[in-house]
Simulated scan of single mutants.
Amino acid sequence: MFELRRLRLLHELALRGTIAEVAASLSYSPSTVSQQLALLEKEAGVALLEPDGRRVRLTPQGRMLAEHAARALELDEEARAALAAHAGWEPVRIAAMPTAAQTIAPAALTLLAERAPELRVELAEMPPEESLFELWARRLDLVIAEQYPGHTREQRDGVVHELLGEDPIRIVLPPSEHPVALHELRDRAWVMEPEGTAVRQWTVQQCRAAGFEPDVRFEAADLTAHVRLVAAGLAVGMLPDLIWGDEPSPLTVADLPGSPVRQVFTAVRAASRAHEAVDVVRTALSDAFAAHRRVAP
């Protein structure tokens, strides 16, 4: 019989690509990971790894067993969910994008403190590009993420997305200014999120559709920095309404052409959808988002 813990290490290697990354993800030493994979090879009776320069890669047999390992982990998760329904709550590990971590998540945690006070929820703020991968890799149980018009997130096998709601995106300008159309901002300095993020690509495309290439002088993953740079009169930008919570915007806001919205959604593994604790958390997040009311600027 294969040991599930070793199968998970093989599965993680198939996902992450290097023993060092597997070790860092699971808080093991690289030598421990290598030793356990060597034992798994002995159990399998075939070579699962082969040298690839200074690293290792999976052999065809290793890739085959990694696929079986993924199914074994799903069955283990389903079994644990079924048992948990009779044995009380298990901790739920969630990750939320920054705007949700600051608004939706606290409201949902307040609801959960009333509805299921014995349930332990562990929350991490994490960008969707990272959190959706970690959900797939089983380090998380639920993720709050977003996707922008024309930039749908990757659909991974065994992961289910469910819409929480829509969040309008608007132009933001210094509080001393009046609202203007997007094309009038061609000569302004812009603040945007870092290169490689979906929101950065989308924001640049909005500017190009308005007939100009934005002068991106400031990059920041933290949207609080965006707010401060715009408030200081140093830049203009685009921000989602959710960032203001239930407070009025301290900045001047203006509508974008077509009044675009981003979709805010939750993602869970299909194997854990029946887990009562995950369902309770997802329901609280949905109720918190529904109760969210943005005050018009």
Rank of each mutant, 00 (worst) to 15 (best):
W190V: 07
V264P: 00
L9G: 01
T203A: 00
A82V: 14
R55Q: 14
V261D: 05
R153P: 06
H226I: 08
E74G: 09
R188Q: 07
A124I: 15
S131A: 15
F289S: 01
A271N: 10
V199S: 00
E134A: 14
E74N: 02
R93D: 11
A108Q: 10
V160N: 11
A14H: 05
P297Y: 07
H183C: 14
T197S: 06
E77D: 14
L164G: 02
R217P: 07
E213Y: 05
L111D: 05
E130T: 15
Q102N: 13
E184H: 02
S25K: 03
D287K: 15
L135T: 10
R54H: 15
C207H: 00
V191R: 08
A23F: 00
L83N: 10
R63G: 07
R217M: 06
L109K: 05
E166A: 09
R6H: 09
R6P: 06
A96I: 00
E41N: 07
S286L: 08
R188K: 02
S272I: 13
P214W: 04
M1G: 11
E276Y: 10
Q206I: 04
M97P: 12
T103G: 02
V22D: 05
L140E: 01
D279C: 11
P174V: 07
P257E: 06
Q201H: 15
E219L: 13
A38S: 14
I144N: 12
E114F: 10
H161P: 11
Q36W: 11
S249F: 02
A20Q: 13
P260C: 08
R170D: 03
A198H: 13
H292V: 13
W136Y: 12
E122Q: 10
P250D: 03
M238V: 12
L119C: 04
E166Y: 09
E213Q: 03
L10T: 02
E276V: 13
G62K: 02
L15W: 08
R71F: 12
P248G: 09
V172Y: 00
P30Y: 05
E122V: 14
L26M: 05
F218S: 01
P117L: 05
P106C: 01
V191F: 04
R63N: 01
V191D: 04
D279Y: 09
R186I: 14
P98Q: 13
G45D: 08
T283E: 12
D52Y: 09
A20N: 15
V268G: 07
G211C: 06
S176V: 15
R188A: 03
M97L: 15
P60A: 14
E43Y: 05
G233Y: 05
R54F: 15
P175V: 05
E184A: 11
F289L: 06
L15T: 10
A198P: 12
S176N: 08
R200H: 06
Q206W: 02
R273L: 04
P257R: 02
R93E: 08
P174R: 03
P60M: 12
H151C: 04
T18D: 00
R6Y: 06
A254F: 03
E21D: 10
A70H: 01
P117E: 11
V46E: 13
F212S: 03
T32M: 06
R139A: 08
A225Y: 02
P98L: 03
R293E: 02
A221W: 04
P214L: 01
V199H: 00
G45H: 12
R120T: 14
L15K: 12
E184D: 09
V143E: 13
L83F: 04
A38Q: 10
L112F: 07
P179Y: 03
L223N: 01
R269V: 07
V180K: 14
A225V: 04
